[in-house]
């Protein structure tokens, strides 16, 4: 967790202080060191949850359901940060804080999906049934991820094309690229740490009357 914090901090400081000014957008582009890692993580967390969902549905791994349930709030947090930073970044560059652009709308849909997953799970008293239904929803929801990925190219609206797309290399020059990669790495570690913390709490609450919980405490 400390590694995550330090990495994140280094990425941000480097991005904020030392990266040169962007020619077009001036300094407001510095939010990129926050927005891009956040939206990447938002999609990665959902991808992780869909893998757990498959494991739970196919091999009935109870732990996988717990992981989904604890990863969901982390997903909500990170997607909110992505949306928040995206809209704030929009003010200086696009003039309005909300643009009906394909990429932002899809991330908003992702945000609703995270909320949907949490509400679905909490509205069933029987825990096992709630887990299975939640996994089904997560697996079906995963179809939305490629739509978000592709939404930029399909509807080629004003959203900046992905800064680091795997195929054609980075579309920003190196001096900004290094802080960006470090902050992505930092954000990933921090989110994993938060996820582990939440799942520790959730697993304890779910298994509280089991033997190993008493001995562990």
């Amino acid at each position: 967790m400390f590694l995550g914090f330090s990495c994140l901090a280094m990425g941000w400081i480097w991005g904020l202080a030392f990266a040169p000014e962007d020619a077009i957008q001036g300094n407001s582009y510095r939010i990129i060191f926050l927005h891009v890692p956040a939206s990447i993580m938002a999609q990665l967390i959902y991808f992780f949850m869909s893998i757990c969902a498959l494991m739970h549905l196919v091999w009935r791994v109870k732990l996988a359901a717990y992981l989904i349930k604890s990863a969901a709030p982390v997903g909500v947090l990170i997607t909110f940060i992505a949306l928040f930073s995206g809209s704030i970044w929009g003010i200086p560059t696009w003039g309005t804080w909300w643009q009906w652009d394909a990429r932002i709308t899809s991330t908003l849909i992702l945000f609703i999906m995270y909320l949907g997953i949490i509400t679905l799970h909490s509205s069933f008293s029987n825990a096992e049934k709630a887990d299975r239904l939640m996994s089904i929803l997560v697996v079906v929801g995963v179809v939305n991820i490629p739509i978000i990925k592709k939404s930029v190219d399909w509807w080629s609206t004003l959203h900046q094309p992905a800064s680091i797309s795997i195929s054609d290399g980075a579309s920003i020059d190196p001096s900004m690229l290094y802080p960006l990669t470090i902050s992505i790495f930092g954000m990933a570690l921090t989110m994993i740490a938060l996820g582990i913390l939440v799942s520790k709490l959730y697993i304890l609450t779910r298994e509280k009357n089991k033997k190993w919980v008493q001995s562990h405490v």
Binding site: I109, I112, M113, L115, G116, L120, V143, N144
Partner: peptide, 9 residues
């Protein structure tokens, strides 16, 4: 609950 779950799709 049905709406929240299926609207994104």
């Amino acid at each position: 609950l049905g709406v929240v779950a299926s609207l994104p799709l």
